[in-house]
Amino acid sequence: MTAPIPGQAPDSSSVAALSLRGLAKRFGGKIAVDGISLDVPAGSFFGIVGPNGAGKTTTLSMATGLLRPDFGTAVVHGVDVWRHPLEAKRLMGILPDGVRLFDRLTGEQLITYAGLLRGMDKAVVAARVGELLAAMDLSQDAGTLVVDYSAGMTKKIALASALIHAPRLLVLDEPFEAVDPVSAANIRSILDRYVDSGGTVIVSSHVMDLVQRMCDHVAVVAKGRLLAAGTVDEVRGGASLEDRFVQLVGGHTHTEGLEWLRTF
């Protein structure tokens, strides 16, 4: 069941922020996730990379309590996600990819809603909403309905909703998709400071370059299995992460044919 884990992260001295054991999920005849075991060290900036349909989103959904696994366990800071979901969800901030938002609320209302749903105090929510909007550069659009936001603004407001309760672990699925470079830099500096002060961030991404620059740990997932995990330097072993990734995942086809494309 358990996939081989080359380059298992060695520095698991403290308790892991997220610990997956034999996580598996099947949809009909298709095995989406085939026994993934993984430890995300506390205080790390952890990247999960993989091709389309690799099982990244499914794995993260199972790890965060959005999708019940068929097998395996997910433990956040020592709390089993599926045995004690309320406690586990208090520790986590989640940015799922491709789900809708309550987009008939204004940006300000949406973040407030996320805070109040978590039972937070009104005054605390109000203070944090203002700061989050400023940090995301959305103060000017705070009163606009989210449905009228651009894709990047929508991403940022969803991220702000995931941060409002000061979680210890942030799980972000494709956080930089459609976000402009300036906002992406802002978000990255927010995340960097968050990690410096002891928080843990897990991001999934297609963009190898970004992961190599931003993350200190990385896991490579393909076809529902874990191919490699460890610090970024361990995994890439001297090569660029992109080259190593293509080598691990395989499937790079030399583009033969299409000669006519050069004839104009």
Partner: peptide
């Protein structure tokens, strides 16, 4: 859409700041 600054929470500012109140406001 015209940009609109925040500061108006609408019903979220009126109804009790509890989870049920928030769901009701939403």
């Amino acid at each position: 859409a015209a940009k609109r600054r925040g500061g108006r929470l609408g019903l979220f500012g009126v109804l009790p700041a509890t989870p049920a109140g928030a769901v009701m406001a939403r």
